[in-house]
Design a protein around this nucleic acid. Structure first.
Length: 197
DNA sequence: CGGCCGATCCACT
DNA sequence: GTGGATCGGCCGA
């Protein structure tokens, strides 16, 4: 079932990053459904977080999506090559987000292999934020799309389901975030969560 | 308007 | 282990 819209509105983005592990990130692109179990996330804690695009209250056309009410997608282009997918959280005006860094493919695996050109799944399939968007057919042009089902059935859809998979603290690994060395002390924050399935 | 660089990935050595 | 791809965002002039 869909995650309750209230899930995205809570104010602790780090807890939300942890809670997203084990949920199913799903897309329907051109009528084809694909999904994967979320296995790796990172929290980006808004205006006080030097690693965040919204640090110090920065607002640009790109980052405006992060300021929206929790429950929409923030997707942006990284290194001129890769689209990276984030879940926007918290109330409107608070630019928190969770980067999805890894999934384990679940539904629509043939289509996902088709998108990547790979012949088979491997343990590394779906590990890496650029891989996630490639597998699920996400593109930065889809930024701002609603995740809670409020946009109805027209057009491509993105949503997150809870299918009852439990993630226990014993499975959990926590570390500093990847690729944010420029963020000074904030680069050391334990905001990365991952599991192996 | 110019220039630098990034929440990455892959091929190649 | 390393470097190239590739281009929009951002900042300073």
């Amino acid at each position: 079932m869909y995650l309750d819209p209230a899930f995205y509105l809570r104010d602790d983005v780090v807890m939300i990053a942890r809670d997203l592990l084990g949920k199913y990130l799903c897309t329907e692109i051109n009528g084809v459904v694909t999904s994967g179990i979320i296995t790796e996330t990172e929290a980006y804690a808004g205006t006080s977080d030097k690693a965040s695009h919204a640090y110090n209250g920065r607002r640009t056309e790109r980052t405006e999506t992060m300021y929206r009410k929790g429950g929409v997608a923030y997707i942006y282009l990284c290194y001129g090559v890769h689209s990276l997918f984030n879940v926007v959280t918290n109330q409107e005006g608070v630019p928190h987000a969770v980067l999805i860094r890894g999934i384990k493919p679940a539904d629509g695996i043939p289509e996902m292999l088709n998108r990547t050109g790979a012949a088979n799944l491997t343990p590394k399939t779906g590990i890496g934020p650029g891989k996630v968007t490639k597998l699920l057919g996400l593109h930065y042009s889809m930024t701002g799309r609603d995740l809670t089902g409020a946009e109805g059935k027209a057009g491509d859809r993105i949503w997150i389901e809870d299918r009852g998979l439990k993630v226990y603290d014993e499975q959990l690994r926590i570390s500093a975030r990847i690729g944010v060395d420029y963020a000074g002390e904030d680069a050391k924050l334990p905001y990365r969560f991952f599991i192996s399935l």
